[in-house]
Write a protein that binds this DNA or RNA. Structure first.
Lengths: 216, 216
DNA sequence: AACACTATTGACCACTACGGTCAATTTAAA
DNA sequence: TTTAAATTGACCGTAGTGGTCAATAGTGTT
């Protein structure tokens, strides 16, 4: 057989035959461990324990630790790609655009809480085993996302006396800041749907403050 | 001898006889490793390598890994305490107060780049060997710092239609955001003094934007 | 009930890195 | 030259690593 030999692919296709719930448990367990400890110091034992499967199963689905990592990275990048693709370039209002992206991100985070953290961790990853290939796979997505998120933005909506670049930075930092705060409070909520609504609603308050400050 | 037995103290006093430069190298190496990997996964081998001393020396100065960690934590907390004590309660302008604290923090970070990160990492530390004692030592300082930083602030300076609580959050997130950005750019500068000046100068730009937005 | 086939397990392997020790060596002081 | 103190790094028992694979459990077919 020329194509599809086991050595060529990251993953054993039988992984996709698992119940979706189990797939998600494995994906989340892997992401969580790699985010927390980086590639080298992450333990496959810890992953199987968190996922509630055996070591043998994990290494049945994935050839080795590295392939597992790369699968998770690709998995995350595809999701980001979809979000980027969905950006509506017609709407030049930065606050609208960020709000829409926020909704999409939130929905993903309900299923995969640390998925976006994996990408920021990957940027800082130092392990020689994966550093080079991370760069190859990550940088085009990064470039694209940065470009498209700010493409065709209507800067005339901003007040003339405000430094647009710095304003956008403040907006970004506020977003991540509020995101972190929300995640840290998430433990107390059981109904993630309700939490999501509250989250988006309260985000509007922050957004309004900055919009009032930065817009004409 | 009743007091000062080696078992009772975190540190062998001969550590203080070392040249200050060497002390700082050891402190920074330890902080860096513990911040990056947490207590359990931090390696004393990595620390001695980074510090440029031998394993025997490290365990001569400190009884064990745990005492080293606690020494570094206490060392950091004392510095934070000093900064808190220096807050001028007469000045009710939040922006002024934060600016002054920022200057103090910056000076510390010139000598100990990751010192404040050790405290935020300590909050999230999960190792059972140190988790309990961290809480005991950390929480009073945290409480004090939060209280005093916002004590006697003149809220009448804020516009009536702005949510002060959220405004302060935005200010905090902008501070940490810009701090992170600055640290990530720090590699390219050799003269830390000059960098510090630029840093504070540019911080003023962000501060002005928010001040203009939030104040009457 | 008996069979065939796949999915899943966890004991096990060779190996690496760990925290900590201490006899031997270097350095500094007297 | 002698003595004392500071520093080293080879070495120890232990624990945890990524990965394997014979054995077992589970499922569907006849």
């Amino acid at each position: 057989m020329k194509y599809g030999r086991k050595e060529d692919v990251l993953i054993n296709p039988s992984f996709y035959n698992l119940k979706q719930q189990k797939q998600e448990r494995i994906i989340n367990a892997g992401i969580k461990e790699f985010v927390r400890n980086g590639f080298d110091k992450s333990s496959t034992n810890a992953i199987v324990e968190e996922a509630g499967i055996s070591k043998g199963s994990l290494f049945n689905y994935f050839n080795n630790k590295k392939d597992l990592y790369l699968f998770l990275l690709d998995y995350s990048l595809e999701i980001v790609d979809k979000i980027i693709d969905d950006i509506d370039l017609e709407d030049g209002d930065l606050f609208n655009r960020i709000h829409k992206v926020g909704i999409r991100k939130l929905k993903v985070q309900m299923e995969f809480p640390h998925l976006f953290d994996l990408m920021t961790a990957a940027v800082a990853e130092e392990s020689e085993d994966v550093r080079d290939i991370i760069k190859v796979r990550l940088s085009p997505v990064y470039r694209e996302s940065q470009n498209k998120l700010y493409e065709n933005i209507d800067y005339s909506l901003f007040r003339e006396d405000v430094d647009v670049e710095k304003a956008i930075e403040i907006l970004t930092w506020t977003m991540t800041g509020y995101g972190d705060k929300a995640v840290s409070q998430l433990r107390s909520f059981e109904d993630l749907g309700e939490f999501g609504e509250r989250y988006l609603e309260e985000w509007e308050r922050y957004s309004e403050i900055l919009k009032y400050s930065f817009y004409k």
